[in-house]
Design a binder for these strands. Structure first.
Lengths: 356, 356
DNA sequence: CGCAATATTGCAATCGATTGCAATAAAGCG
DNA sequence: CGCTTTATTGCAATCGATTGCAATATTGCG
């Protein structure tokens, strides 16, 4: 290595198998240095705008690098600098139901997180992992691939998330604030949301409102609490049979409608915990000959793009995906910086968007 | 470094700022080696199941590593091995319309690619980039962050994609086969799809079918060709005014319907180039008092989950997202291995899914 | 029990960059 | 013009792992 330059000039490409691919041997700092007639040190400093390198040398090297389409090897750079600008984003999937998450809200959130990360100069490593094995998310940090993890949704795994946080893993979760929570969450006030939605239906005279959601999930449980409060506030009774367990997959909503009808349980409205469930339920209701909104009023949650394109437009609780994505990213980076002043839960705004 | 072990035993943590975070100093091979009383070499070999290490030592080290929750530093490993198991997935966005892609089909494809990559033991780097600057995708390979790039959709940038391929960048694109194409595409037969959809409408007696799509995009252009062929096959005339430029964003479909109606252009059906456009168009049609499917029949494309939940269920051309994701990943890995026998275009299947 | 053959182990170089420190070149000053 | 000060530059160590090769420990066999 020391005296390489004094030997034959073309002795590179040590590991390249003969026969194929001589051209794509990647250009690296060494090459730039040789061509510019300086040392690698100087190239490194020039490319990172060190004041130790004169302005004209910087320009010359920058141009050379650009013309060779050189990009520094991020892996090597990270190794040496002990840094890393990648964040892992995890979308848990429910292995028991063998269903991958396809809810547009969760998926849409991805895009907004991607944008927020890009804006901060971070890369995004996307990973779907089994909701039962959330601990696997730690791998991304342990192996140095990412500096932190964003998990979309708490699902049924508050405990696993706590364990992750206990391992000092920079972690932010989209979800609800829970008691004894060791990790940071970002999310809207689900109790308020549930209350808004239910209140809207009650105000329009509905009295038997079916609740579609899986209260084993913290966010849903809180929305149900809002449902209860809205009833209580008006001194109205509720009925146990109207609380239907519906996970976040479309087919479940269809089944739920069928089941209510089959059991001849009377209801005049549905509060669905996601727009996907709401839209599917509307379809199912019509299939069994019920009119929406005349016979049954339906209200959704999330306000995904598609909601406003349904007919009639779906009334729903709006959560801003853009704000959420930015908040998640900001929180994660703050934690990673060691920001102590960060609260355990960051609320995002919530409004009801009624159909015209 | 040489005589480190002979000096004071606790002299590590060189860069850790005092005050915060003493525990999360990451455990590394060095630590395992010290605790096991062997050299790093042995630990490295043990963890990669080298036959040079005896079985019992392997087990001992594996257990020690597990108990310390150690994961090898992938960055360092990649650097040394000169390999890399990450693929960049690019979702271009249209900066001119300042609209981020939210079409469920594209987004759904992400999930399926993620699954296919995970199955092969690859990580997925997700990136949204400006469709005008697709060349930026090369950065991911140049900087060694990824071994190849999957681009979802060709958009208007066949030329840019060709340039990327010319730079010997392992690249696979979801899209149509085009003349003079230097890169590998995966996609269904769009001419056939367009023909199927149009034929279906013609068969049910529709004669003035509006085409919703942007024929500047290759895939859409081919679907339009199918539209023309279906007409030609039956010797039916077409009308220029029914070819409406509609990019892949929901609002555009709404505008297109309004515009047709405002211009008093007669039509009895719409062939929309995506389900998102179809569903939005249906809503817009109803808003102006037109009945679907009585007055206007609508057919979509893609068969996204939501399509079957609409009311009435949307008739649409089904493309399997799962198959597509797998095909994209397989193709990319084949290219990356230097597989010469790979064709330029890999077709995926296509069927029409008519509403009941 | 002695020596050759085999099974394990560790040293040291290496991957592609960054950076402290010493060396050199350029500039400033009397 | 000579010497100090300042601006550039390069050497060599380093990040956390992998691996060829030489060294050592173990085993087998006569």
């Amino acid at each position: 290595m020391v005296n390489k330059n004094t030997e034959s000039p073309e002795q590179k490409q040590p590991l390249v198998k003969p026969g194929i691919k001589p051209p794509p041997s990647k250009v690296q700092m060494d090459d730039i240095a040789r061509l510019a007639g300086v040392s690698v040190s100087t190239v490194s400093r020039a490319l990172s705008h060190s004041p130790l390198v004169s302005a004209k040398t910087q320009v010359r090297i920058a141009e050379l690098a650009a013309s060779l389409k050189y990009s520094v090897n991020v892996g090597a750079q990270n190794l040496r600098r002990g840094q890393n600008r990648t964040v892992a984003v995890v979308i848990p999937y429910d292995s028991s139901s063998r269903q991958h998450v396809s809810d547009p809200f969760f998926i849409g959130m991805l895009g907004s997180i991607a944008d927020a990360l890009t804006l901060q100069g971070y890369d995004m490593l996307l990973s779907r992992i089994d909701a039962e094995r959330l601990d696997l998310a730690a791998q991304y940090c342990d192996s140095g691939r990412a500096v932190g993890v964003i998990v979309i949704g708490q699902w049924r795994h508050h405990d696993q998330l706590n364990e992750l946080a206990a391992r000092h893993l920079p972690l932010v979760v989209w979800g609800a604030e829970l008691p004894k929570q060791m990790y940071c969450t970002v999310g809207s006030d689900n109790v308020e949301g549930g209350s808004l939605a239910t209140g809207h239906l009650l105000k329009t005279g509905r009295r038997r409102i079916a609740f579609f959601g899986d209260t084993q999930m913290p966010e849903v449980a809180q929305r149900f609490e809002g449902y209860e409060r809205a009833h209580a506030a008006l001194g109205l009774p509720m009925s146990e049979e109207l609380n239907v367990v519906v996970p976040f997959v479309a087919e479940a909503a269809r089944e739920a409608v069928k089941s209510l009808v089959a059991k001849k349980i009377a209801f005049d409205a549905i509060f669905a915990c996601s727009d996907l469930l709401a839209i599917t339920a509307i379809g199912a209701l019509r299939d069994v000959g019920l009119s929406v909104p005349n016979d049954i009023a339906v209200i959704g949650y999330d306000d995904v793009d598609m909601a406003s394109y349904c007919h009639p437009a779906l009334t729903t609780i709006h959560q801003s995906i853009e704000v959420a994505g930015r908040a998640l990213v900001d929180a994660l980076l703050a934690i990673q910086r060691g920001d102590e002043a960060l609260p355990n839960h960051l609320p995002t705004r919530l409004v009801i968007r009624a159909s015209a």
